[in-house]
């Protein structure tokens, strides 16, 4: 006998979290059979290229310039700008990550020890906005009024160094905590599945030799010290899937 009675209650005061792609779930009763809802799976929503969702055009250019110094292009591998890291960060800031959704946001907000972790009252989107303003202000102050994007690479590196060591002041933000976030977000965009807007054409995966979303290495567990022969694939695509002419 199948008794499947999932009470679908309207979401009220209780906390129901939206994940990146799935609908919120509601309290339910399960008995007699596994609950099974056709079409309930939640694949990720792919990032579609196009205008910035969160950054202003000027901010977008600044972020592209910053990430391209954090992971610079070289003859061997892509830089973060071409890999799409700024697009990745933009879409993340426009979504739940940017709003600090799911994090604990009750006050009082007190700066504690390093071991107690970041305690900012500002969400990541607001921190980025303030930081980008501060980065241009700092660049202007140290380099004849020029914004970050107009600096020579070495000067850009010096400004990034000032974020890293915490000496570049950002209003209401612990600069070192912002740096930790910026560095993480850049690497995430570089190495995440291309479905999130970075790691374009799986360039970063190809560069280090990571096969991506392949899910079965049964044939390679015994092939010790031998190069893995297959190109990477992603959740939504594989660079191999192209007309011969465009390869």
């Amino acid at each position: 006998m199948l008794i499947l009675n999932r009470r679908r209650l309207l979401s009220g005061t209780a906390l129901v979290l939206f994940t990146a792609s799935s609908a919120p779930s509601r309290a339910g009763t399960i008995a007699g059979a596994l609950p099974w809802a056709p079409g309930a799976a939640a694949p990720p929503r792919p990032v579609v290229p196009g205008p910035w969702h969160f950054f202003t055009p000027a901010e977008g250019r600044t972020v592209e310039a910053i990430v391209d110094r954090i992971i610079p292009p070289d003859p061997d591998g892509p830089g973060a700008r071409d890999a799409g890291c700024a697009v990745f960060i933009d879409r993340q800031l426009a979504g739940p990550f940017g709003r600090a959704e799911g994090l604990y946001d009750h006050g009082p907000f007190v700066t504690g020890t390093k071991q107690q972790g970041p305690q900012s009252r500002l969400d990541p989107a607001t921190q980025y906005r303030g930081a980008l303003r501060a980065i241009d202000a700092y660049s202007a102050q140290h380099h004849d009024g020029r914004p970050f994007v107009d600096l020579a690479a070495a000067d850009q590196d010096a400004v990034i160094g000032a974020i890293e060591d915490g000496s570049l002041p950002i209003e209401d933000v612990v600069t070192k905590d912002f740096w930790t976030m910026l560095l993480k977000n850049t690497r995430q965009g570089f190495f995440a599945d291309p479905v999130y807007g970075g790691n374009r054409d799986m360039a970063a995966w190809k560069w280090i030799g990571f096969p991506g979303a392949r899910y079965d290495y049964s044939d390679w567990i015994d092939r010790h010290n031998e190069p893995y022969p297959h190109a990477p694939i992603g959740i939504a695509e594989a660079p191999l899937w192209r007309p011969a002419a465009s390869k």
């Binding site: 990146a20 799976a41 694949p43 990720p44 190495f191 599945d193 979303a213 899910y215 959740i235």
Partner: peptide, 15 residues
């Protein structure tokens, strides 16, 4: 498994 982490999109480090 089928709904929350099928092999089609389970290998997603970021998510």
């Amino acid at each position: 498994t089928a709904q929350d982490f099928p092999p089609t999109y389970a290998p997603d480090e970021y998510r």
